[in-house]
Design a protein around this nucleic acid. Structure first.
Length: 475
RNA sequence: GGCGCCGUAGCCAAGUGGUAAGGCAGAGGUCUGCAAAACCUCUAUUCGUCGGUUCGAUUCCGACCGGCGCCUCCA
């Protein structure tokens, strides 16, 4: 089996083949740092994390680029509203984004180009498009892309067969454009832009980049730098970016380079709340930090998301999140059991567990090879937990192999419970209480034993009596 | 209006032209002083509705109902 991924260009699941294996160039549209990213945004980033990790698991050498949109309509408006300069306003949100990323265990990209630090590349791209005659200066002084000059326009979003909704595109600056569907590459500086420091000089006039231009310029600049190419292997983002954002990126990039911009386009579906997409606009959002403050284990969020295919909308509910949390703990228990066996020196060799693990790995790969079918991969995982536990119950060998295989899969899914921090004092207290309870139990003073158990539970210590003594863990 | 997606158990959710994975929750049992954890058993004769194609459809086609998205610098 080899990896196949859905390609928005063809609307089909296609075998994935990078231009220059094992190198894979991956560009994912990052956050606009005008505010905190919400969980819906992170569903996309998490889907991209799964993609990135599975490519690596499959032996590819991934170069992952994620841009930070730190200048656009919203960042300018937000900065102006806060009476700050653009950079002053966005800096804390960039910081917050990285914190949230780490909380959710998303692997850092190899490059995080920022729009405001890539202006030179954007100016060069606009100049090239002007030279090639596919861009023009509108009556308002802004530079526009002439979609009539780019025959492939609409291929990604199937716009060629669409009709625009009457009135949908009536913008105030429409008179400035040759065709209402033309989009801005470079917007002439307005007083509001100057006020927050969002304007740059360019040969074609002082202004600021359009959002679509930013991604084209940054991705082309980064892959040229890292890999000496002008074509991305994969470009990914949320479904809402298909049109116009990605359509416009293709037009700009391909008109400039005369090369395919991206070979494979992947789009993740929305995170919904009661059937409607989570959005700042609707006010139905939740941020990663909200969950962290509620003490939600990031592993539960990850498992919840993995249990729905990335191309299907997922309704976020507390009940579903709680359920995922229970699954995460069960996985943690299973791994702890395997680890215990290995440490007792009983887990070596082949045997039942090793066989189950091998079977699991085959199923796991087959599932993810099939357009990242993580729900199926999770089903295989829980099958291993179920069968593995049953095998452990009857003392089957092979735990060490199973542990290795499990940990390898966790490199992709990363859904084991977060280890709780424990200081020496708490540890001593727990030992003391357990000893006291043990004494009470031996004396058949179960009332006292249960009282101590409740005392432990009050501080988050769960206990479990086993033939080899009382085990405990923090919850 | 145009383009497109979705509708599977209490909840979440895979999947296939041949008769329904997995998770959570729930019930009973084993184990335990009691618990916990784990295991065993059970929980959709049925996949929005109605037609059609087929030996056979949840899976293909059509219509309808319901929900949603994009067409507005939204992940």
């Amino acid at each position: 089996m080899t990896l196949a991924l859905h390609n928005t260009l063809t609307r089909r699941v296609e075998p994935f083949a990078p231009l220059a294996p094992p190198r894979v160039t991956l560009y994912t549209c990052g956050p606009t740092v005008w505010n905190f990213a919400h969980l819906g945004n992170f569903r996309t980033f998490l889907f991209e994390d799964l993609l990135r990790r599975y490519l690596e698991y499959s032996g590819y050498d991934v170069f992952h680029i994620m841009n930070l949109t730190d200048v656009d309509d919203r960042t300018i408006k937000a900065a102006a509203g806060a009476g700050k300069l653009l950079g002053e306003h966005t800096a804390p949100f960039v910081q917050a984004f990285f914190e949230d990323r780490d909380y959710l265990r998303i692997k850092p990209a190899h490059a995080y180009p920022r729009a405001t630090e890539s202006i030179a590349a954007m100016v060069r791209l606009v100049e090239r498009l002007l030279e090639r005659g596919v861009a023009y200066k509108g009556d308002d002084g802004s530079i526009y892309f002439a979609i009539a000059k780019f025959p492939g326009y609409g291929r990604l979003s199937r716009l060629d067969t669409r009709e625009l909704k009457v009135g949908a595109r009536v913008a105030s600056d429409e008179y400035a454009k040759d065709d209402p569907r033309d989009f801005a590459l470079w917007k002439k500086a307005e007083p509001a832009d100057e006020q927050v420091g969002a304007a740059w000089d360019a040969p074609f006039g002082r202004g600021r980049p359009g959002w679509h231009l930013e991604c084209s310029a940054m991705s082309l600049e980064q892959i040229a730098k890292c890999c000496g190419t002008t074509t991305l292997d994969i470009h990914a983002g949320g479904v809402d970016l298909v049109f116009p954002h990605h359509e416009d990126e293709i037009a700009q990039s391909e008109a400039a380079t005369a090369q395919p911009f991206a070979r494979h386009w992947l789009h993740g579906e929305f995170l919904n709340v009661r059937g409607t997409k989570m959005s700042k606009r609707f006010g139905n959002f939740l941020t990663a930090r909200d969950l962290r403050e509620q003490g939600v284990d990031a592993a539960a969020v990850r498992l919840l998301f993995w249990q729905t295919h990335y191309r299907k909308a997922l309704d976020f509910t507390d009940e579903a999140l709680t359920g995922a949390g229970a699954g995460v703990r069960r996985l943690g228990e299973f791994r702890a059991r395997l680890l215990g066996e290995r440490e007792k020196g009983k887990g070596e060799g082949e045997g039942k567990l090793a066989g189950l693990a091998t079977k699991f790995e085959t199923d796991f790969r087959a599932a993810l090879d099939d357009d990242l079918n993580a729900p199926r991969a999770c089903a295989a995982l829980f099958q291993l937990v179920h069968d593995g536990n049953a095998a452990l119950d009857v003392g089957a060998p092979g735990a060490a192999v199973a542990l290795t295989v499990l940990d390898r899969a966790m490199e992709v899914l990363d859904v084991l419970p977060t280890a709780k921090r424990l200081d020496a004092e708490l540890r001593r207290w727990i030992q003391d209480r357990l000893a006291a309870r043990d004494k009470a139990r031996k004396a058949k003073d179960f009332k006292e034993a249960d009282r101590i158990r409740a005392e432990l539970a009050a501080r988050g210590v769960e206990i479990e009596d086993t033939p080899s003594g009382t085990k405990w863990r923090l919850v």
